[in-house]
Design a protein around this nucleic acid. Structure first.
Length: 569
RNA sequence: GGCGGUGUAGCUCAGUGGUUAGAGCGGCGGCUUCAUAAGCCGCAUGUCGGGGGUUCAAGUCCCUCCACCGCUACCA
C-alpha cells in the first residue's frame, strides 16, 4: 500500500518564523496531510528544527546563552507558532536533541566514505584569532578589490555586484568582532557530487517529473555540479566519526549535510515512540513510499539533488523524493519579510488580533505557487469579508437561523416527492462544483481554495432560486425540503473545509447537530443526484453563531500602522 | 555578468496551439428580504509588455528588445 512520507523544510533554530515560512513549507504540508488522511491514506508528517551551524553559535554567543539552551528556546518558540496556526506534525524534534541523529549522520558519512563518494581537499580559509573560528564568507567584511568599496561582503560586493573571493579581499575583517583574520590551512571532506551524479542521481533527476518551476533549477544544477564540502572546523555539530577522522580532530559535519538526515532521525524517533522501533524503515526504505518534500525554492538543489545523492550514495534502498512542491517567495506588502527590520507579522501577534483559520485560508489562497506573491492586509480583509464571511459564513447563518426561527431548531423533513427536483436544481443548475482535494493532490492550493468558495456559492444560488421564505407560505413541505437539502450541502461544505480550516469546519459540523469530528468522517465523494444525502432531517441543530465575524477597516488599519511603527523604530 | 521568474480587465490572478480571452474583488444597474447592510441576476472595461518569426491557427511555440523581481552555492 502506498504511504505518503511528507516533510516540511527544517526551520533554522536561529529566530522566529513568519508568514513567509508558514506559507512556503508548513501550511501546505499540513493541508496536504489532512486531506490525504481524510481520504484514508497513510501519511506521516515530519518536521523539527535545524540546530547546528555557525550562525547559531554566533547567535547564541550574542545572547550569551549556551548553544543547547539557545536552540531549545527557538525550537519551542517556533513550535508554538505552528501550534497557533493548527499545523500538526506527527513528530517534532531538533537535530541537536534527536536521539538517533548523531549516530545516523555519522553512519551516512561513514558509508559514503567507504563507498568512495567522499574526497578530501586541503584549502586555505580566513580564520579569526579573536573569535577562534574560521570565517564563512558572509562573516568577512573588507574592501572590494574590483571597485574599492570599503564595506564589501565576503561573498559579493554590494556596489559592483561582483563575486568575491574573501581571500582576495583587501583589508579583511571579522564581521563579528572586527579583528583582522589570518589565513590558515585546513583539510575538509567533500561530497563527490559529480561522481554521484554520473552513477545514478543525474539520470534519475533529469528523468524525474518535477513540478515545472523545479525542473529548470534541477537541470541547471546538474550541469554545474561540483564537490561540496561537508565538514567544518568547529565544535557545535555532529562530530566527524572518530574512526574516519584520523588526524583531523575538532571537525563536525557541515550543517547542510546533517540537516536533511534529520527527516530520517525524527522518523526513527517517532517509530520508537510508537513502540515499533523498526517502523521507520517502512517509511524510508520501502518502494511503496511517496516522499514529498515541502520547501521554499531556495532549497531546491538540496532536496532534488544533494539529499537524493546522499540517500542513494549510502546504498541502503532509501526512497528518493517523489514530489518536491517548492514554493516561490512570499513578500509582505511588496517588500521582503525581514524580522530584524520589523517588516514582518509575528504569528503570535496575528493570532491575538485575527482569526488564525481565516489567516490559513488567505495564506493558501495567495500562496506563491508559480510566482512570488504578497501578503497584503487589504487583500486579507477582502478575502475574509467577501469570501469567507459573505459566501460561506452567511450561507450557514441564513440557512440555520431560518430553521431556528421556523422549525424549532431542527432540520425539517425532506418530502420524498421533491427530492429528484431539488437534486437536479442543486446539482446541475446552480453552478459548477468540484472536489477541492483533487487540486490539493496536485499541490494547487490556490485553486483548491477557490473551489471551496465556488462550492459554497452553489448553495447560495440554490437558496435564491427556491426562495424557501416564499415557499413557506405557498408550499410548506417544499420549503422544508429545500432547507433540509441546504443542510446536506452544509455538511459537505464542512468536510471540504476541514483541511483548510479545521476548527471552522468543526464549528459548522457542530452547528448542524452532527456528532464527532468532521476530520474523522472521511472524505466525501462528489454529490450525485439521489445518492448524496445523509438524511439529516429531524436532527437538532447546535447553537448557531457567525462563523466569520466581519473584519472592520479599523483593525486592518491598526495592523498596517503597527507594521509601519515597527519599521520606524 | 550568469541562471531563473514575472509582465493578461481598475486590483489580484486563471488560462493542455484551436470558436466572440475568463474568474474573483471593486464599479454600475436590477431582483430579493431567509441571512453577518448578506444573497442572486445582468452590464462594462483588455494594443494578452513592445517588435519580429513559425503555423491553416499564437496569450500559448521561437527570436529579440523593454520593465520589475529572485538566486548566484564553504549561509542554512
Amino acid at each position: 500500500m502506498v504511504r505518503y512520507l511528507v516533510t516540511s523544510a527544517l526551520p533554522y533554530a536561529n529566530g522566529p518564523i513568519h508568514f513567509g515560512h508558514l506559507v512556503g513549507a508548513y501550511l501546505p504540508a499540513d493541508v496536504y496531510a489532512r486531506t490525504l488522511r481524510m481520504q484514508g491514506e497513510e501519511v506521516l508528517l515530519v518536521c523539527g528544527t535545524d540546530e547546528h551551524g555557525v550562525a547559531i553559535t554566533i547567535g547564541a554567543e550574542r545572547e550569551q546563552q549556551p548553544y543547547a539552551e539557545y536552540v531549545a528556546h527557538w525550537r519551542t518558540k517556533i513550535k508554538a507558532s505552528f501550534d497557533l496556526f493548527g499545523i500538526e506534525f506527527d513528530v517534532w524534534s531538533g537535530t541537536s536533541i534527536s536521539p538517533f541523529h548523531v549516530e545516523l549522520s555519522q553512519e551516512f558519512f561513514t558509508r559514503l566514505d567507504e563507498r568512495g563518494y567522499l574526497i578530501q581537499r586541503e584549502i586555505e580559509q580566513l580564520h579569526c584569532p579573536r573569535c577562534v573560528r574560521f570565517l564563512a564568507d558572509r562573516y568577512v567584511e573588507g574592501t572590494c578589490p574590483h571597485c574599492g568599496y570599503e564595506a564589501a561582503r565576503g561573498d559579493e560586493c554590494p556596489r559592483c555586484a561582483k563575486w568575491l573571493d574573501p581571500l582576495a579581499m583587501l583589508h579583511p575583517r571579522c564581521k563579528v568582532c572586527g579583528s583582522t583574520p589570518t589565513r590558515k590551512q585546513t583539510r575538509h571532506w567533500y561530497l563527490d557530487l559529480p561522481r554521484l551524479r554520473d552513477d545514478k542521481i543525474g539520470a534519475w533527476a533529469s528523468g524525474h517529473e518535477w513540478k515545472p518551476n523545479v525542473a529548470k533549477f534541477v537541470a541547471n544544477q546538474l550541469a554545474e555540479i561540483e564537490p561540496r564540502p561537508i565538514t567544518r572546523d568547529m565544535q557545535w555539530g555532529v562530530p566527524v566519526p572518530a574512526a574516519r577522522a584520523g588526524e583531523q580532530q575538532g571537525k563536525v559535519l557541515y550543517v547542510w549535510f546533517d540537516a536533511p538526515i534529520g527527516y530520517i532521525s525524527f522518523t526513527r524517533e517517532w517509530a520508537k515512540a510508537q513502540g515499533r522501533p523498526q517502523a521507520w524503515k517502512d517509511w524510508w526504505q520501502s518502494p511503496d513510499t511517496r516522499l514529498v518534500h515541502f520547501i521554499g525554492k531556495d532549497n531546491i538543489p538540496f532536496h532534488c539533488i544533494v539529499f537524493p545523492a546522499m540517500l542513494h550514495g549510502v546504498g541502503q534502498q532509501y526512497v528518493l523524493p517523489w514530489q518536491v512542491p517548492a514554493t516561490e517567495f512570499y513578500n509582505l506588502e511588496g517588500k521582503k519579510f525581514s524580522t530584524s527590520a520589523g517588516w514582518t507579522i509575528p504569528p503570535e501577534e496575528f493570532a491575538a488580533q485575527f482569526d488564525v483559520e481565516s489567516g490559513r485560508f488567505y495564506l493558501l489562497a495567495s500562496m506563491p505557487e508559480t510566482a512570488d506573491s504578497d501578503f497584503r492586509w487589504d487583500e486579507f480583509q477582502r478575502t475574509h469579508n467577501s469570501l469567507l464571511a459573505d459566501v460561506i459564513g452567511n450561507l450557514a447563518t441564513r440557512v440555520l437561523r431560518f430553521q431556528d426561527k421556523h422549525y424549532a431548531g431542527r432540520i425539517p423533513a425532506l418530502e420524498p416527492s421533491y427530492e429528484a427536483e431539488l437534486d437536479r436544481v442543486l446539482l446541475t443548475e446552480c453552478g459548477s462544483f468540484a472536489d477541492p482535494a483533487a487540486h490539493v493532490r496536485e499541490f494547487r492550493f490556490r485553486r483548491a481554495a477557490e473551489q471551496l468558495i465556488e462550492n459554497a456559492r452553489v448553495a447560495n444560488v440554490f437558496v435564491d432560486r427556491l426562495a424557501p421564505w416564499a415557499l413557506q407560505k405557498t408550499n410548506p413541505a417544499k420549503a422544508a425540503s429545500v432547507l433540509a437539502t441546504c443542510c446536506e450541502w452544509l455538511a459537505y461544505l464542512a468536510q471540504w473545509m476541514a483541511p483548510f480550516m479545521p476548527a471552522k469546519a468543526q464549528s459548522l459540523w457542530s452547528m448542524l447537530g452532527l456528532e464527532g469530528l468532521v476530520a474523522g468522517q472521511g472524505w466525501p465523494t462528489l454529490p450525485v443526484p439521489g445518492r448524496y444525502r445523509r438524511q439529516l432531517s429531524g436532527r437538532k441543530l447546535g447553537p448557531v453563531s457567525a462563523l466569520f465575524p466581519k473584519l472592520d477597516d479599523a483593525s486592518i488599519a491598526a495592523a498596517i500602522d503597527r507594521l509601519k511603527q515597527a519599521t520606524r523604530s
